[in-house]
Amino acid sequence: MNNERQQLNRQLAQMLKGGVIMDVTTPEQARIAEEAGACAVMALERIPADIRAAGGVSRMSDPKMIRGIQEAVSIPVMAKCRIGHIAEAQILQAIEIDYIDESEVLSPADNIHHIDKTRFDVPFVCGAKNLGEALRRIAEGATMIRTKGEPGTGDVVQAVSHMRLMQSEIRRLSAMSVDELYEAAKQLQAPYELVRWVHDNGRLPVVNFAAGGVATPADAALMMQLGAEGVFVGSGIFKSGNPAKRAAAIVKAVTNWQDAKMLAELSEDLGEAMVGINEQEIELLMAERGK
């Protein structure tokens, strides 16, 4: 991927800002999501909550199923490949996916290496729990970052921890003197150039979304207040009682996250939220995959 392509891919993420990216498993769900105001959809065979329930190895979705969703909607379509699975990423690029999520939600294919994303023309989004992880993914060519959160739980606590940690690490870097940045890069285990960029600009060099456990308009507004530039909602929508209404409410909550009165109205009568599991109740911490 040349610099210009990298730039264009970062810029597509800029266009998604202030928006909600929704997990969908069928063309019909994709249309509901688009109609409700999703700025992109993530096409996958099973949403994270079901991946958790099913167990076993979880892989890239059937390209035919992804194509069905590409044909159903006009907004960008994303899809997940396993961490380090170069071939799955090549397949997704071949079907002209708009964004690849190299995702810890699927079973990792490589316990050590992530994909060298600079070799692709198609853009990648990756999860991160902290600034070091985020900068390592960006060094590998990711053009968008999201918090890992704890997918498929409906529990926002991990997304909050990851976003808070990232923001506080960014603030700390910004306050450092230039000669302290070499040591900071060493501790973050991230390239010096990227550490320097964050120090100079006070933010990540790519767009940063919240993901993992967002289930309500209030969750989405919380993540925006903590500095997210948009949100991914995975299991939260189509595992709930009234997906269309909940999806539209979350979209409006992301635009008007500063207006508590509107959030109150948006939170009314949404039907049952996804049941959710507490972080303490789960055995598999997806966020620990791929550092």
């Binding site: 998604l16 105001g37 409006k252 635009t255």
Partner: peptide, 15 residues
């Protein structure tokens, strides 16, 4: 601005 026109249209109306 730029973004997704479907989203912006929907929000222009709903809001």
């Amino acid at each position: 601005p730029g973004g997704e026109s479907t989203v912006q249209r929907r929000l222009l109306e709903d809001l």
